[in-house]
Design a protein around this nucleic acid. Sequence first.
DNA 1: GCCAACGTTGGC
DNA 2: GCCAACGTTGGC
Length: 139
Amino acid sequence: MNYWLFKSEPSTWGWDDQLAKGDEGEEWDGVRNYQARNFMRQMEIGDRGFFYHSQKERALVGIVEVMAEAHPDSTTDDPRWDCVDVKAVKSLPRPVTLDEIKADARLAEMILVKNSRLSVQPVTEEEWRILCELAGTDP
DNA sequence: GCCAACGTTGGC
DNA sequence: GCCAACGTTGGC
């Protein structure tokens, strides 16, 4: 199983919206960046990812699961863009803020820290474990 | 609201 | 194929 991180502006698509969709899940559409798309193409059903609120909040708030592998993005006719479907698994008991992540030397290599603009990114197993610990939840 | 960083586009 | 111009993202 692989681990990922999905970024979203709460005003566009927030954790509350994702939760409201429940097990039905939702397309992670609107990605128009090749790197991010390529990561989505690598995803497999059952992979897990953190849901990150960008902009004002800047914190990991929930965990999602990949429920459909990459397929054409329904929000565009451009065949270049694919996306996966994800569903909410659980809210984090304690959101993990970007400040906390930056303050932890073990997380210094995260793409979130190094390349703040990539909206879909991989997370290593060790980072996943540390972040779950900070969030007060089981990996 | 600003601006740095980055990715994409398009002219040459 | 290079690179300048432009647009977007997201932290501050």
